[in-house]
């Protein structure tokens, strides 16, 4: 299974004092173009510590092949790249009716907590809805508190499936 990439919103452990007040951003959300991929790869490398430009190029090609089931979106404001999200409709995995998966999201650290991640998730959800999908799903590392908190803040809760794995070396 694919791993949700990058970070959408920071959530330090304890905060008695309010976060610095920075303005909300109203980003433009559009389909990613090949010219966006270096920025996507750089942001992902910055957020995850692992550079994988070939993965992002290949993923973009695969999204373009099934435009009614997959969306690779980017957020920008005043021409500046701020983040990306990728969604895909998957169906009938262990009996699951068609469902919209968000399996990658990343927001520029300087633009976090400013509505960019929320707008990206909303935009992916809108496309899923347009395709008749009623549920949004994602998978995160248990210790990825940053993204867990972000998706929780979007109203997501534990779903009906449990992820299992084992070492098969």
């Amino acid at each position: 299974m694919r791993k949700t990439a990058s970070s959408a919103s920071p959530a330090p452990p304890r905060g008695a004092s309010p976060a610095p007040s920075r303005g909300r951003i109203e980003p433009v959300i559009r389909a990613a173009r090949p010219g966006d991929l270096p920025a996507v790869a750089a942001l992902d490398a910055r957020n995850t510590g692992e550079a994988k430009p070939a993965y992002w190029r290949d993923l973009h090609r695969r999204v373009l092949r099934r435009p009614k089931e997959r969306w690779f979106l980017v957020a920008e404001a005043e021409g500046r790249f701020l983040g990306f999200a990728i969604g895909e409709i998957r169906a009938w995995e262990f009996g699951s009716p068609p469902c919209g998966w968000v399996f990658a999201i990343g927001v520029d650290p300087g633009a976090r907590l400013r509505n960019v991640g929320s707008r990206l998730v909303d935009a992916v959800a809108e496309r899923f809805r347009g395709a008749g999908i009623k549920h949004l799903r994602t998978m995160l590392r248990r210790d990825d508190n940053l993204n867990l908190s972000f998706f929780r803040s979007q109203g997501m809760m534990a779903g009906p499936f449990i992820q299992l794995e084992k070492v098969i070396e």
């Binding site: 959530a11 905060g15 976060a19």
Partner: peptide, 9 residues
């Protein structure tokens, strides 16, 4: 409440 509800878990 004087904490930051967006940060306090």
């Amino acid at each position: 409440f004087v904490g930051n509800p967006k940060r306090v878990t």
